[in-house]
Amino acid sequence: MILVFGQTGQVAQEMQQLVPDATFLGRDRVDLSEPEAAATAIREANPSAVINAAAYTAVDRAEEEEALAKVVNGDALGAMAEACRDLGIPLVHISTDYVFDGSGERPFTPIDPTRPLGAYGRTKLAGEEAIRAAGGPYAILRTSWVFSAHGANFVKTMLRLSESRDHLRVVADQIGGPTPARAIAEACLTIAQDLQRAPEKSGVYHFSGAPDVSWAGFAREIFARAGRQVNVEEIPSTAYPTPAKRPLNSRLDCSDLAVFGLQRPDWRSGLDEVLTELGAI
Rank of each mutant, 00 (worst) to 15 (best):
S164R: 15
D97N: 10
D253H: 12
S237V: 07
L161N: 02
T238S: 14
T8D: 14
L252Q: 06
V259D: 01
C84P: 06
D173L: 11
R228F: 01
I51P: 06
F218T: 00
R122K: 11
Q16T: 00
E273I: 04
Y205W: 05
G151V: 08
D212Q: 06
V4Y: 06
V11Q: 05
D173K: 10
V170T: 09
T57G: 00
I42W: 02
N249R: 07
V4K: 07
M15A: 14
Q193D: 13
L117T: 09
E36Y: 09
M1L: 02
L195T: 11
I222V: 15
L275Y: 08
A183K: 03
R27P: 02
Q10V: 04
A280E: 15
A53I: 11
G9D: 13
A219N: 06
P178F: 02
K124I: 05
D166H: 12
V170E: 01
K124E: 04
A219E: 04
R106C: 09
E64M: 12
L3F: 08
A192Q: 11
L262R: 12
R160F: 01
R268G: 04
P35W: 01
L125G: 08
D253N: 15
A58D: 14
W267A: 08
G121T: 11
H167F: 06
D256Y: 12
R27W: 05
R169H: 10
D173W: 10
T276S: 13
L91E: 03
G135N: 03
V59C: 03
Q13G: 07
N46A: 15
R165E: 12
F223E: 04
E44I: 07
E36R: 14
A149N: 04
G209D: 01
T242R: 15
I2V: 13
E66D: 09
P178R: 01
C254L: 07
Y205C: 06
T143G: 03
T276Q: 14
F24A: 06
E14L: 01
S103Y: 01
L159Q: 08
D272S: 14
E186K: 11
Y98T: 03
E277A: 15
A126S: 12
F154L: 13
N153C: 09
D173V: 09
E36F: 09
A79C: 05
I222P: 00
N46L: 08
E44N: 13
E63C: 04
M80Y: 10
K245A: 12
G9P: 11
L252Y: 06
A130C: 10
C84F: 05
E128D: 15
K245S: 06
I42A: 02
V71I: 15
K156W: 08
F218R: 00
G261A: 11
V4H: 06
L141R: 09
H150V: 05
T157W: 13
L189E: 07
G127T: 05
A280L: 12
A216H: 03
C84W: 03
P116T: 09
V230I: 00
R182K: 15
E129P: 01
L168S: 05
P47M: 12
G136H: 07
T96N: 03
V274A: 14
A183C: 01
A172W: 00
R251I: 01
A119G: 08
F5A: 12
V146E: 00
A183I: 00
V50Y: 05
E277T: 13
R115A: 13
D272P: 00
C188K: 10
F108W: 13
L87K: 13
